[in-house]
């Protein structure tokens, strides 16, 4: 799924290709073009897609239980098309996103550019039905609505 493509990894590969040998740390590479952890740059990433997740690892291979939980919750609602950024690929971004949202932990979920919360909040929104409503605002119909209808009419 293209939505789950790790943008950072793709970008860093592209960037590295024409350069001389010797891998530079990503954080240094980023510093050269304004810094990927800067507020402006983070803002662009946050707004790149209606559903954005900053996580450890990527959706196909999350490297943290909380990041995994966020991906699984989105999938449960049928949200396959979202933009994920792997903060483990970029120390600047890892700190930059925490500064941007004033939130100390990863994962972080953004809907329509707005910070929603981390794993605990997404889980509770899933449990209390708020997530279905929030997705609806984005024009996304939660797959759980159809699943419920199939089960029984109540």
């Amino acid at each position: 799924m293209s939505g789950s493509l790790c943008w950072l990894r793709a970008a860093s590969l592209l960037r590295r290709a024409p350069l001389r040998w010797g891998a530079r740390p990503l954080s240094q590479a980023a510093a050269g073009d304004g810094g990927r952890g800067s507020r402006e740059s983070v803002e662009r990433l946050v707004r790149a897609h209606p559903v954005v997740v900053f996580m450890k690892g990527n959706p196909a291979q999350p490297l943290c239980g909380f990041s995994n939980a966020v991906v699984q919750i989105l999938r449960l609602h049928g949200v396959q098309d979202f933009q994920a950024y792997d903060v483990l690929q970029d120390a600047d971004l890892r700190q930059g996103i925490k500064n941007y949202s004033n939130w100390p932990t990863i994962p972080q979920v953004y809907l329509n550019g707005e910070f929603v919360g981390g794993c605990d909040i997404l889980l509770q929104m899933h449990q209390n039905g708020d997530l279905v409503e929030e997705l609806k605002k984005l024009g996304i119909r939660s797959a759980l609505l159809d699943a419920e209808k199939d089960q029984d009419k109540k």
């Binding site: 004033n102 939130w103 100390p104 910070f115 919360g117 605990d120 909040i121 509770q124 929104m125």
Partner: peptide
């Protein structure tokens, strides 16, 4: 709202969370 509540906790424990 939930986000605000969690922020209160995060702020209180900012030092510890590090």
């Amino acid at each position: 709202p939930l986000l605000h509540r969690h922020r209160l906790v995060n702020e209180l424990l900012a030092e510890e969370l590090k």
